[in-house]
């Protein structure tokens, strides 16, 4: 096993680059939300779902963000109840 210091510097190891990825994701989010925003501004007619709720403008993004965060937080809460030692059953 070689010493990590001798290795070449990976692109991902620069904190600045990680920020770049972060901003890139935000940019992508804006891009995919664009059709919806344009519909809202009556520039474009873009129907997503087959029923009302799905056409609510934040529906998918809501699911993406809020649903996700809720899930993680719920899991964190449950951890207090569910977690045991690694060798609990042994």
């Amino acid at each position: 096993m070689s010493n990590p210091d001798d290795e070449k510097k990976y692109w991902l190891e620069e904190p600045a680059n990680i920020n770049k990825i972060f901003y890139a994701v935000i940019g992508l989010c804006v891009l995919v939300a664009l059709p919806k925003v344009l519909t809202l501004l009556d520039i474009l007619l873009f129907k997503q779902g087959r029923f009302e709720l799905a056409d609510f403008f934040v529906f998918y993004t809501f699911f993406g963000v809020i649903g996700y965060v809720m899930m993680i937080l719920l899991a964190k809460k449950l951890r207090g109840f569910l977690m045991r030692d690694e060798d609990y059953y042994d």
């Binding site: 989010c29 129907k47 997503q48 779902g49 998918y60 993406g64």
Partner: peptide, 19 residues
């Protein structure tokens, strides 16, 4: 088109939340 955009919205915003 609608399906692709919806799926991407969902997925990218989830990634955003993760980050």
């Amino acid at each position: 088109f609608g399906h692709i955009v919806s799926a991407l919205q969902l997925l990218f915003f989830a990634i955003l939340a993760f980050m």
